[in-house]
């Protein structure tokens, strides 16, 4: 009876660190997987669909290119949105009122409106008015503007959480302004923002799928095109989900690990 319980429950271990034994973890993961598969299988059977993934081989080069395009879009957007985020976080604490209001209006507008609306709107501004005809570049710009607002909030939050006592100590040991940034503020901010920023990268990867509505040929758009030809909607989107997970799962795992590591330090 006790053994059975250990297989399902996290043992308390006398108030020590709660430990999950390896067999119990494996067993429960299998159980969860079996449930999901059963659920899918049952649903598909009800609507009388038989999955057939064999067509994927035929499209492998297009799918691979789409996968690379999504990865590229996300990486470039990460870099630009970081830049935008840092600038607008700094701008929001600027003493020049115009800059301060400009940045906070930008952050509030972006965070308060849906991405799909921004994509349509900015595509006509960025694409048509600014003359950016390359859809990949337009996609990177639009996504960076969107994610930059979220990153600005992450950075602003960590700046606010810096304790006054740390800055006072920096002055007391004789650090100059620059040294204070280099040896105190930046290292503390990086450890605080890195887990959240990594998580934001997973969001960028997922959000990039919406760029398919302006026909940026990335992973989602590729799959949409393939499914429009062969009508294998279920297989296409199921596989699409798996491909996104291949990108986002490792990123989330890294984010979780970073979070745990930095928790120990604070």
């Amino acid at each position: 009876m006790k053994h059975l319980k250990q297989l399902f429950w996290i043992s308390d271990n006398n108030g020590q660190h709660k430990k999950i034994s390896r067999p119990a973890a494996l067993f429960n993961l299998l159980l969860v997987a079996a449930l999901w598969v059963a659920l899918f299988w049952f649903s598909l059977r009800t609507i009388q669909i038989r999955l057939d993934f064999t067509f994927l081989g035929e499209f492998r080069i297009r799918i691979w290119n789409g996968f690379l395009a999504t990865l590229g879009l996300s990486l470039f957007s990460l870099i630009f949105s970081l830049l935008i985020g840092i600038l607008s976080a700094a701008g929001q604490s600027s003493s020049v009122l115009f800059i301060r209001f400009f940045c906070s209006v930008y952050v509030k507008f972006i965070r308060g409106t849906p991405l799909i609306m921004q994509i349509y709107l900015f595509f006509y501004i960025v694409g048509t008015a600014w003359g950016v005809s390359n859809r990949f570049i337009a996609g990177v710009l639009i996504l960076s503007i969107f994610e930059g607002a979220y990153i600005a909030e992450i950075i602003r939050g960590s700046l606010l959480s810096l304790e006054e006592s740390q800055l006072e100590a920096a002055r007391a040991v004789g650090f100059s302004r620059r040294q204070t940034w280099r040896f105190v503020i930046l290292p503390q901010m990086i450890t605080r923002t890195l887990p959240a920023l990594t998580g934001q990268f997973a969001s960028i990867i997922k959000d990039s799928s919406l760029l398919s509505i302006i026909a940026v040929i990335e992973l989602t758009q590729t799959m949409r095109e393939i499914s429009a030809v062969n009508f294998r909607l279920f297989e296409c989107y199921l596989f699409l989900g798996i491909l996104y997970l291949c990108l986002t799962l490792p990123v989330s795992l890294i984010s979780e690990r970073l979070e745990r590591r930095f928790q120990y330090e604070n």
Binding site: E163, S165, Q166, E168, A169, A170, A172, V173, F183, V184, P187, Q188, T191, E265, N266
Partner: peptide
Amino acid sequence: FVFQQGGLFRH
């Protein structure tokens, strides 16, 4: 200078 508390750089 020695502070009451929290004066060490935590990182």
